[in-house]
Design a protein around this nucleic acid. Structure first.
Length: 589
DNA sequence: GTAGGGTTAG
């Protein structure tokens, strides 16, 4: 962050709204300069400027271009009916008019009208096909109707349609086809790279996305903002702060300017990496913020346990007249839950107009963390909709912590119905029985898993070192420093035991042999590796200050270097900052 | 000299 000084190049240039305003105010009394208007309207659209331009009067040859640009604008920003009115008034429609209208329908998710128009139009071109392919892939509906379009494309294959197909394949999760098409392309441009990088990133393969980005650089293709947004976001998902900082330097070096989404990606990356100071700095430096800026930072604070900051942000949001959406509320409730703000959480929950199952799950979690297990069961009972897995998941976890077998059985029975394939639920229930020494029940639950053919998912974890990601899989010894890792692991265990941290150790090391918890083994490998490459001699000191948060026992990840007496550990989506024997979440054992 | 491809959130 040190050398990072943001500007806002993509804020709307002043002249655009001015010209737009004069266009409208003169009732589109176009002059011979009218040919610039379609370009200006398009430019305005790219900047997000919407203006009222429904008053077009035809009187000039160029007006059909203006009208087309306006249809496009309404198609993007609404109201769509205005676009349709203009479209219906056209006596002789050009292919471009049909295409603009069809894209408008797809933008608003109206497949029926989009398809209807495409069937009606007398002649299609490449643009029509591209719009249709993209439309179907957005609906994840390539199988039903889009495949036919793919085949029909035939002679229309060019750079743009291929790019559209790559992102279409990626959007429906068919990365193999996307990659095949990408590799075989006679020409590529930056959008081809963006499409394939986005494809991997969207499908949870952030590492491949970053590797492709490295390829791209090596091939001297200059990335643009969209590439960087994807790469920075991928760094966030991986917790790869070193490479993320490299990317920030790259932005500066190549003078790639960021818009709001670029800044949002930076907020996301820094928050995910536990670097809330820089996340907040980016947020503060922005000239304009949207709901994503807010919810990303709120979610970051929530994960880090800074409930007050999260709640204060929601007030600031109100002042800026930005309406929280459902994910913002999830972030806020999570923050209250992790920060112990029961009343504030309850107040926020009550203020949600139409709470969904996820909001209930957060609320159940909040009640449980405050010891209100039976109240949470009541809340579940009061739900108008069918509770999703997360709702019972919170209850099941709490039942283990509070040793409430009755509630655990209740939650597990529901979870076995909703997601019978999820091995974690069986493991948790069997652990609940085990902690009460009810071995017959332990065996019974394991039997259920065998009968149902439920397989434990393979645990894996990773840690970043010098810009490279190291992946560890349960039972895997293929890492080049595997011998060292196991040595550090066993030394750590001994030192922890000598230091008298048996209880904490259970979370980090107890299950090395048993591999009881999903992923625990690989997480420990990652921890050991982090110790190995950072400060191998400070293991004892770190261990002395370590307290394990009750949520950490499923997954532990060190994402920062072990400097001083502070250690930042990350589980799936939450940070725990331990120092002096305290955890930032105030939720440690 | 219109229209089509890539963008952030639990």
């Amino acid at each position: 962050m040190s050398s990072f000084s943001p500007t806002f190049p993509n804020s709307t240039p002043n002249w655009v709204p001015m010209v737009m305003f004069s266009t409208c105010s003169t009732k589109c009394n176009v002059t011979s300069d009218a040919f610039v208007y379609p370009i200006l309207i398009k430019a305005a659209g790219k900047c997000g400027v919407v203006f009222h331009a429904h008053c077009i009067r035809m009187g000039h040859d160029w007006d059909r271009f203006i009208r087309n640009a306006i249809i496009d604008m309404y198609g993007k920003f609404g109201p769509l009916e205005f676009a349709r009115e203009l479209f219906d008034e056209i006596p002789e429609r050009a292919v471009a008019d049909w295409n603009a209208m069809i894209s408008g329908y797809w933008n608003w998710g109206n497949e029926v009208e989009a398809r209807g128009l495409s069937d009606l139009m007398p002649e299609k071109n490449m643009v029509t096909w591209t719009a249709m392919v993209t439309g179907y892939s957005r609906r994840k509906d390539l199988e039903k109707a889009g495949k036919k379009i793919f085949d029909e494309l035939g002679t229309y294959k060019n750079l743009v349609t291929r790019n559209a197909m790559i992102s279409a394949y990626a959007r429906v999760g068919d990365l193999a086809s996307a990659r095949e098409l990408f590799d075989k392309m006679p020409q590529k441009n930056v959008i081809s790279w963006n499409s394939i990088i986005a494809g991997y990133a969207q499908n949870g393969q952030s590492k491949v996305a970053i590797d492709l980005f490295k390829d791209m650089i090596a091939k001297d293709v200059l990335p643009d903002e969209v590439t960087m947004v994807r790469v920075i976001s991928a760094c966030g998902h991986l917790g790869a702060l070193e490479f993320g900082n490299w990317a920030v330097n790259f932005l500066e070096k190549h003078q790639i300017k960021l818009s709001i989404s670029g800044y949002n990606a930076l907020i996301f990356m820094y928050s995910k990496c536990g670097n809330m100071k820089d996340a907040e700095e980016v947020f503060q430096s922005m000239e304009a913020r949207d709901v994503i800026s807010y919810k990303t930072l709120i979610t970051g604070f929530a994960a880090y346990g800074n409930a007050i900051e999260a709640v204060e942000l929601s007030w600031k949001m109100k002042k800026e007249n930005i309406e929280p959406d459902r994910i913002t509320y999830i972030g806020l409730l999570t923050a209250c839950s992790h920060g112990g703000l029961l009343e504030e959480g309850q107040r926020i929950f009550d203020s949600i107009k139409d709470p969904d199952s996820d909001h209930y799950a957060c609320m159940v979690d909040l009640l449980i963390r405050n010891g209100k297990l039976d109240e949470s069961k009541c809340l579940i009972g009061s739900m108008a909709m069918h509770p999703r897995a997360g709702v019972y998941g919170s209850l099941l976890h709490a039942s283990r912590v509070h040793k409430r077998i009755d509630l655990g059985e209740f939650a597990a029975s529901k979870l076995f119905e909703i997601e019978p394939e999820n091995s974690g639920n069986y493991v948790l229930l069997s652990n609940i029985y085990a902690s009460a020494a009810r071995w017959e029940d332990v065996e019974r639950v394991r039997g259920l898993m065998t009968i149902g053919g439920v397989k434990k998912t393979t645990g894996w974890s990773w840690v970043e070192h010098e810009g490279e990601m190291h992946k560890f899989i349960v039972g895997d010894r293929s890492h080049e420093r595997s011998a060292d890792i196991y040595r550090v692991l066993s030394e750590t265990e001994k030192k922890m035991r000598l230091a008298g941290y048996m209880a904490d150790m259970s979370c980090v090391l107890k299950y090395v042999e048993e591999e009881e918890m999903v992923g625990a083994h690989s997480e420990k490998m990652a921890v050991a590796y982090a110790l190995l490459v950072t400060e191998p001699h400070s293991v004892t000191r770190v261990v002395k200050n370590l307290r394990i948060c009750r949520d950490c026992h499923t997954a532990i990840k060190i994402i920062s270097k072990l400097g001083g007496r502070e250690i930042i550990v990350r589980d799936n989506n939450r940070f725990h900052c331990f120092s002096e024997g305290h955890c930032s979440c105030k939720d440690y054992w």
